[in-house]
Amino acid sequence: MTDDEAGQAGKEPEEEGRTLRETITVILLGLTAILTAWSGFEASKWGGEMSIAFSRASTQRIVASTEATNAQAARAIDLQVFGLYLEGVADDNDLLADFAEERFTPHFAVAFDEWYASEPLKNPDAAPSPFALESYVPPGQVESAEADERADAYFVRALANNQRGDNYTILTVLFALVLFFGAFANRFRTERISWAMVGGAAVLMVVGVGFLLSFPKII
């Protein structure tokens, strides 16, 4: 065997190793590019879900405020009519007391009947007024509380969606590192360093895929 043939035989394993490394690197870079695009897509989708949830939470806050205003208005009317009733009772004016009682709103009449049945003038344990009873529920009070609960739920969902979007954004950074290691893997003359770069890129990609599989997805 001549020196040229011996040199050629020594180069063949080296060339085969370089070709194998380059092939693996291309596959890693191709898969990482796809995974990066998918992570960006998911981050965008979760960001949209976050915005929708925040918007719905704001809408429910407005509904809760409107219903609370309605409840306050109803309570104000009931207070005025009940004040006329107390004035009639205090002045022994049965006509005024009956006039006011006939104009009790249905929701107030329920609480008033319960309060009156407790004999508040004789019973020290009786509620100070019908408004202190749980049976007094002006229109809008329940609706306001329910809207507040829905707003809280949407707000919590928005925060969760924001975190999910951030997770995918961080994942794109991880895949960017894979691209970095893969791009520079073949820039080194030393085979050991080149393979170390490829191995590091592969490990990072496996870690990223593991996270990607564990994250919730929107398609």
Rank of each mutant, 00 (worst) to 15 (best):
D4R: 11
Q8W: 14
A9P: 03
G10R: 14
G10Q: 15
E15R: 13
E16P: 00
T23R: 12
I27C: 06
L29M: 14
I34M: 10
T36D: 10
W38E: 15
W38M: 13
W38Y: 14
F41A: 14
F41I: 06
K45Y: 04
K45I: 09
M50G: 02
S51Q: 14
S55T: 15
S55Y: 04
R61H: 03
I62A: 14
T66Q: 13
T66A: 09
T66V: 13
A68T: 11
D78P: 00
L79F: 07
L86S: 11
E87T: 14
D92C: 05
N93D: 15
L95P: 00
L96V: 09
A100G: 03
F108M: 08
A109E: 14
V110I: 15
V110M: 10
V110D: 03
E114R: 01
Y116W: 12
S118K: 07
N123S: 10
D125P: 00
A126V: 06
A126H: 04
P128K: 10
P128T: 02
F131M: 03
A132Y: 06
E134W: 01
Y136D: 01
P138M: 08
V142G: 01
S144F: 09
E146M: 06
E149M: 06
R150A: 14
A151G: 08
A153L: 09
V156T: 13
N161T: 06
N162P: 00
G165D: 07
I170Y: 11
L171V: 09
G182A: 07
G182R: 01
A183P: 02
F184W: 08
F184V: 15
T190L: 12
T190V: 12
R192C: 02
S194V: 02
S194H: 04
W195I: 07
W195S: 08
A196Y: 01
M197W: 11
M197V: 02
G200H: 06
A202Y: 08
A202K: 03
L204P: 01
V209G: 04
F211M: 12
F215E: 10
